[in-house]
Design a protein around this nucleic acid. Structure first.
Length: 190
DNA sequence: GCTTACCACGATG
DNA sequence: CATCGTGGTAAGC
């Protein structure tokens, strides 16, 4: 049975949490303005309540997470614990990780690349277990509006503001709540 | 197992 | 604006 530990930290008025699995791999990450909501979301997929414990690995993950939240570069050395996600979801995640900082791509572009439908990509993106580490905020609808974003596992009316702020801090050009087309990055062919 | 309903979407008119 | 197609999930039988 896999053992999990939880580590939580506050930064710029927001709570950040990481759920560490075996061998200090990252099982899930999340952030929220509400600490209780954050914890609830992080543990919702694990069988038992994990103990709060901070380790060198969790400290590193949390500081990377905060840097990503601020739109900054990171060492990107966090190992994701992939065993519990479907291969479809893994494919979507792999593609999302290729989106450069400061750029965006669309649900449709990802769908085309992996030969599936945009709604299917939407569900996979929505279920991303590693927000920020896997930059799902860089996926937008094809009309280049901001689209939606779930906070701690649920849609909310301010989710799109959070998403816009993340993109803005990465210097994605946004005019009038719309991404400028020069920021669009497309998955390479082949 | 199969069926249904649900979606962080897209294309068409 | 409306409507339909769409494919992966999860919950329901």
């Amino acid at each position: 049975m896999e053992k999990f530990t939880l580590a939580i930290k506050r930064h710029r008025g927001t709570w950040f949490g990481v759920l560490m699995g075996d061998q200090n791999g990252l099982f899930a990450s999340s952030f929220s303005s509400k600490k209780t909501k954050l914890e609830k979301h992080l543990v919702c997929d694990v069988p038992q309540v994990p103990s709060h414990e901070s380790t060198r690995a969790s400290d590193l993950a949390l500081s990377d997470m905060m840097a990503l939240y601020d739109g900054k570069r990171t060492t990107n050395t966090i190992r994701l614990s992939l065993q519990d996600v479907s291969t479809f979801q893994r494919n979507v995640c792999r593609l999302m990780k290729e989106i450069p900082r400061g750029r965006v791509t669309t649900y449709g572009a990802i769908a085309k690349k992996i030969e599936t439908g945009p709604r299917a990509v939407g569900t996979a993106v929505a279920r991303n277990p590693w927000p920020l580490f896997v930059p799902c905020h860089r996926v937008v609808p094809s009309n280049l509006e901001i689209g939606n974003y779930s906070i701690s596992g649920g849609l909310s009316d301010y989710g799109c503001e959070v998403k816009r702020d993340l993109l803005t801090r990465e210097h994605v050009p946004i005019v009038d709540d719309r991404i400028r087309s020069e920021a669009v990055w497309l998955p390479s062919e082949a």
